[in-house]
Simulated assay, not measured.
Amino acid sequence: MNGPLREARISTAAITGNTELLRARIATRHAMAVVKADGYGHGAVAAARAALEGGADHLGVADLDEAFELRAAGIDAPVLAWLHGSALDCDAVAEAGIALGISSLDQLQLAASSSHRVAVHIKVDTGLSRNGVAEADWGRLAERLALAVRAGSVRLEGVFSHLSNTAPDDDRAQITSFERFLDALRSVDLDPGIRHIAASAAALDHPAAHYDMVRFGIALYGIAAEPHLRGTLPLRPAMRLSADVVGVKRVPAGSGVSYGYLHRTTAPTTLALVPLGYADGVPRATQGASVRIGDAVVPVIGRVAMDQFVVDAGDAQVAVGDRAVLWGDPAQGDPSVDDWADAAGTISYELVTRLGRRVHRTVQ
């Protein structure tokens, strides 16, 4: 064996380098490294430290459990958490120095009722129709927020929203909507603090969306946020997913492969078995992906099963114990996670965040 049977090897140097590249390209006052979903599957604590080293000065997570994990690891950089259930312990949040993303009048009331002064970023819905204060409530929210700020019960640290990345006209319409909310705050003499609306795609595509801070998510990990952005920056993939070959056999022409015989061999060939399947996060629907074994890039054939899939090595010399690389750095000859996402009919975000517990993470 060349290491763990199944391994996602994570390069913190790549995350640091990607952060430095993004900061050099987009010179906003602040930069948030988004490390939700366990750092997009790369490890939240390691990713946070690497991004901070590369020049990020804020961290973003979805929920409070993720924020408390960073604090427990000794990370004291500003952290914003923005997706909350009804059980919101604002005292614990304030004591940990975590900023709350506020998406409703009820959440603002909870924050204002805390025995501690709570730092908040107000999230407004500018057209994505997910979390965020609806425009019909902006006037009331601005008035209540002004009262809470002047009473000293909350500290307005920032205001934010999120773009759909559908089309330039749609993004511009959302930016215009965001400006309307900023005007609502100014009408009650509130300073919005840090304004942020751009994530990775908008940060690279829409300078008008930069404001005071951009939120770098998938780009930190060396993956393009949208297909048209692939190759626009020399980002380095931070994850290399591989597994040992656990079986090799020579089969004749006409051999059926895996469940449903989606594939039958057309000539005598060598098949190799890779112990990764949909229980590990490799989509069952994958068709047309490849892996690298040594110097050979060989196709995945047949149905991906729960624990394994088959590749057609042809006449290549493959042995049990050889390493099969699903995705990594194309500059080193590896297939990319985008290649696999295209083959599975999904996006790279899903693949790196869905890896199962059997896949050992090795952080370098």
Rank of each mutant, 00 (worst) to 15 (best):
E7D: 03
D339I: 09
E157Q: 15
A243K: 11
I98S: 00
A225T: 00
G158R: 14
V282R: 10
P335H: 14
I293Y: 07
N18F: 02
S336A: 14
A72K: 14
K123R: 14
P252R: 14
A31W: 01
L326I: 06
V318A: 01
L70D: 02
L156H: 04
R361V: 04
I293A: 06
H206T: 15
S161W: 12
D307M: 06
V304P: 02
L100P: 05
I122S: 08
P268H: 12
L229Q: 15
Y221A: 06
H228T: 06
R361Y: 03
V159S: 08
A344C: 08
Y211H: 15
A253K: 05
G281Y: 10
R236E: 15
V118I: 13
A209S: 15
A92H: 03
D322W: 09
W340Q: 15
V79Q: 07
G193A: 10
D65V: 11
F181H: 13
L271Q: 03
V248I: 10
G41V: 00
P335G: 13
A219R: 00
E53Y: 01
D191N: 13
V363H: 01
A341M: 13
L105D: 12
S129D: 13
R195W: 09
I75Y: 06
D65P: 01
G254A: 11
V154F: 01
H210K: 09
D212H: 06
P237L: 12
V310A: 11
V79L: 08
E135I: 05
S153P: 04
S255T: 15
D65H: 05
D125W: 02
V118T: 08
A316F: 03
L273S: 06
S200H: 00
L21A: 05
P4D: 13
D65F: 08
N165P: 02
V45M: 00
P4E: 14
D57M: 05
G152D: 11
A8V: 02
F216Q: 05
S336V: 14
A112E: 06
G17R: 04
E350G: 06
D342R: 15
A203C: 08
D334R: 13
